[in-house]
Amino acid sequence: MEDKNLQSGTNLAASPTANWEPRIVAFLCNWCSYAGADLAGVSRFQYPPNIRIIRVPCSGRVSANMILDALKAGADGVLVSGCHPGDCHYISGNLHARRRFGLLKNFLEFLGIEPGRINFSWVSASEGEQFSEVVKKVTGRVKALGPTRRLVKEIRID
């Protein structure tokens, strides 16, 4: 997919124009959500092309650093998705992650980051349709918020 905005780089934190499309970084766990995304593709479930998928071994691997780094780099939204509780390939990775994400989401909202910028979900390998629904929901939320401004690092070049 040729993405004009991604190529032009500097405008990633773009102004809300009529054809502005959000960019959402999605951290998907290897065992469930990534496979779920794959299934969505194979099963031809449509979902908005706004997400950029990063495959991680487990949702427990995703740290606050990574989520914030995505926001700093100008991502308009972040989605982290893992296995349903009880299904984790590593038994408890997602359960540890759940505590962390709950705190982080509350904390960022406390500091004034808009709710909806960071999103968490459980999607299993058999839930292709659910995956497309999650992406639709997240994209809708982020679109409603508009381009990200807070926490974005800017370098001005003349």
Binding site: L95, G102, W122, V123
Partner: peptide, 21 residues
């Protein structure tokens, strides 16, 4: 420490869960 452990019933209202149709 609370982030080094978990409970099966930890709150997860903040998660997006799509029900199977």
């Amino acid at each position: 420490p609370p982030l080094a452990t978990y409970r099966p019933d930890d709150p997860e209202e903040f998660l997006i869960v799509e029900e199977k149709k």
